[in-house]
Design a protein around this nucleic acid. Structure first.
Lengths: 196, 196
DNA sequence: TTATCACTTGAACGATCGTTCAAGTAAACC
DNA sequence: GGTTTACTTGAACGATCGTTCAAGTGATAA
């Protein structure tokens, strides 16, 4: 094995994150990984197979970070910092403001079945991560007892998705920070009744 | 002029809305419009030129609908119904739940300069539409006087963007409806201080 | 020593991409 | 009637796409 596996996946992650699945051509991939097509196909079967590994690697990483938030002394503070870090990175890492998974969802129909399944499953993994954070906040008394955890988790993930798209278009961070503040306020705020 | 211009644009809108800019190939377009490549290029210069017109047509339509919301007797109620209509359409029109502009933003880097400019300008037009709605709500006493209109407009648009992505993945509408309820609650809720 | 295995190379393949162009058509203007 | 204008056709172009494959390489097992 000439090339290190983790190193390959990370380089591929950067490329797919920047360009998306479709726009990252095999020749881009060959260049980014410094590998010839035969090697890539022998290892990963196809472009889609490589992408699937990238998605899984990314989701695993993200889930780990969400877990750290849930386990923090103050999960609510940690959540704030998590949002801040993810959404206001330096300009040369602007592409990282967009979630790789969200970006993939936008082109879900162009992706094959295998990778599509990996994307959707990863989104559900992260939703579970957000739910753990909500529950940790309640346990630590940072959110009211009656907060509907399932709904709040879906809402929180959705806010994160929306904010990543928002942050991507912002030139400066002040507006993004205000949006994060609003998220924290609304998290503590009212929730709709289940019966409609 | 053999083919009706508006009819062409609407057919093209449907295709781009369903498939996105990149995935909608020229041969798909030729089939959808029942036109040969030469005709299309003589009229619209390029695929991008056609897409630009589609985006502008779509934005104009959307802005008109936002204007109707702002001019309603109860803008807040009209806003609720606007969200509901946009996000819970029938399954065969599921693609319409995603905003064409948001979908385009996801592939902004793959689109040429001309169409990209049209997309970004359209987003700003719609932001102005959301601001008008906020101001109408305040004027009618449906939102507190001290609501920060610029921030609230950005926030509302962002909620809309996020919810469209959310609704796209939902199998049933109950979760989406709850999210809309939450948006209305948060709109009436607290806002972060400008100084940070 | 030989066989097997997991990779590696780089030329080449067929398919599809957006686009061009010579040629035709029908209405409008001089 | 002739010219111009605004389309229209459909074959064909070069570029790029993801992928394949015959031929190597070097480590491991028998």
């Amino acid at each position: 094995m000439k090339y290190d596996h983790d190193d390959i996946i990370e380089k591929a992650t950067t490329l797919f994150w920047q360009r998306g699945f479709h726009a990252a051509g095999m020749r881009d991939i060959q260049q980014a990984l410094d590998m010839r097509p035969g090697s890539i196909y022998a290892r990963f079967q196809s472009k889609e197979g490589l992408f699937k590994l990238v998605v899984e690697h990314y989701a695993q990483n993200s889930a780990e970070r969400l877990k750290q938030v849930a386990e923090a002394a103050s999960p609510l503070d940690a959540l704030y910092r998590f949002f801040e870090t993810a959404l206001t990175g330096p300009d040369e890492q602007r592409y990282m403001r967009q979630c790789l998974l969200v970006k993939s969802i936008a082109e879900l129909e162009l992706i094959g079945d295998i990778a599509r399944k990996a994307v959707i499953e990863s989104m559900q993994t992260l939703k579970a991560g957000f739910k753990d954070i909500i529950e940790a906040c309640i346990e630590k008394g940072e959110l009211p007892e009656h907060t509907p955890t399932k709904l709040a988790a879906e809402w929180l993930q959705n806010q994160f998705v929306g904010l990543r798209a928002f942050a991507l278009m912002q030139d400066e961070n002040t507006a993004t920070i205000q949006m994060i503040d609003k998220v924290i306020l609304d998290l503590k705020g009212q929730w709709p009744q289940k019966t409609h």
